[in-house]
Design a binder for these strands. Sequence first.
DNA 1: GACGTTATTCTACAACCGTAGTAGTATTTT
DNA 2: AAAATACTACTACGGTTGTAGAATAACGTC
Lengths: 141, 141
Amino acid sequence: MPTKKISDLGPLEHSLLDILWQRKQATAGEVLAAYNDAADKLLAYTTVITLLTRMVDKGILRVDKGRQPFNFTPSVTREQLLRQRVRDFVSTFFDGQNVDLALRLVEDEPLTEEAIQQLEAALQKHKSGRKQRGRKGARKG
Amino acid sequence: MPTKKISDLGPLEHSLLDILWQRKQATAGEVLAAYNDAADKLLAYTTVITLLTRMVDKGILRVDKGRQPFNFTPSVTREQLLRQRVRDFVSTFFDGQNVDLALRLVEDEPLTEEAIQQLEAALQKHKSGRKQRGRKGARKG
DNA sequence: GACGTTATTCTACAACCGTAGTAGTATTTT
DNA sequence: AAAATACTACTACGGTTGTAGAATAACGTC
């Protein structure tokens, strides 16, 4: 049985999971290769196995021992975990207020034209959605 | 000397820091009281002292040993740390793209009318800022 | 200035994470 | 089937964080 919250991962665990998401499934060797290929810090084969196995224990990965080398697959989608992570983050640092983080992100750095448009579109969609649903109390005053 | 990155805190450490930010400075006893007051899990006095002392070692807190009980103050503003945290988060989970997180936040949950307006205002400000800076001849002398 | 109270320091420990070696098991090659 | 190779399981260890007890030091009071 899984022991902990799905979003409870160390940074390295997360990196490996990322690799697994990218290729849907992989062996320890493949994960190692992918990791070492991109990172400056090289890991040992056994390190990867240890990490992978721990993640299986946590319920984050599934392992197919049908034949060797074993095959690992994420048992959680990137989307699920990301959602959880964002929720946790906002909850921890912004008292659960999505807006506060969003505002900060928007205000903080320069955005590309495209980014602005995307955000405006998203807001627009919100407004129309609200109008639809919100008929009864839509007016104040 | 500080040993680590300022944003490197465990969740409990963060909670205590939060209390310190709220009241600018406090003794261990005050921090303990504030914490136990709000949380379901009660801490021991010595636990708080340990945490506080560690944070001093990390350079996150400063301690005034002028008289007992000692007085602790954050040596980092909430703003500084929050900024760092957000940067790290976006960097880890959104490849450094602020927009991607912002978009997700906006699309995700229902927003209040007010929130939408705030976001729109922020975007608006961006656009005018861009126009200013982007005008030909808008160089400074 | 001895006593009780309050605060601090030191020490400890378990869980978790990054890290990896060693030993044993399976697979492939000859 | 023996040898070489590849893979896995087990074990270990240092650092960090949450947790706190024991020992010690400081302080106020009588």
